[in-house]
Amino acid sequence: MCGAELKSLPESVQRVVAALQASGHAQLPRMLEDAARTAQQAADALGIVVGQIAKSIIFRRLSDDAAVLVVTSGDRRVDEHKVAALVGPVGRADAAFVKARTGFTIGGVAPVAHVYPPVTLIDRELFRFAEIWAAAGHPHAVFALAPQDLERLTGAPVADVVLAAA
């Protein structure tokens, strides 16, 4: 992307681009025609299976009001009890909390470039895939990466944080 293209992107996507470039990540965000607020919408837009979507789920840690980001495979559901066992008791985060802590709206929460660095956990189920796609700061923006890149970019541990597959 050139300078002019970057300036036309939403500010939240520009933050993600800057973080990716600073870390040497080669894959820059791609803007989709339609919003991809859900993992299924993103998968459909990209022509991939829903499990390849690295969805960002934000919780509120009860002890200190910290944001807890769980990056999970799009075909899995987060188990709050497993998350709490790793980081302490958590509760649901509303849209205002997500926006204030991350700088992103729900449906576009990137795993990087948060306003305040969250406590982050990566779902081990993402490692089933060679390539995954994550939100890039806006419901229309996504970027490609390998699960190992996600681990490197966030510095987060990989953990079992989902409900058992049916």
Rank of each mutant, 00 (worst) to 15 (best):
A45N: 05
G88T: 03
A67F: 05
D160A: 07
Q41K: 07
A110E: 14
G107F: 03
T72G: 00
E5R: 03
E80S: 13
T72V: 08
E11H: 10
Q41Y: 03
A100V: 11
K82S: 02
I132F: 14
A93D: 13
R101Q: 15
T105C: 13
A84P: 00
D79V: 00
L150M: 10
A54F: 07
A36R: 02
L9H: 02
V158N: 08
D65P: 06
V162W: 02
H114R: 10
D65L: 04
H81Q: 13
L163R: 15
D94R: 04
H138M: 12
A165N: 11
H81F: 13
T120V: 12
F59A: 06
C2A: 08
I53V: 15
D160H: 05
R152Y: 10
L121D: 02
D94I: 04
D75A: 15
G3I: 09
R76T: 04
S73P: 00
I106F: 02
Q27H: 15
K55R: 11
K82C: 00
R101S: 11
D123F: 06
G137D: 11
S56N: 03
A18Y: 10
W133F: 15
G51D: 13
A113K: 10
A134Y: 05
G103T: 05
A36F: 00
H138S: 08
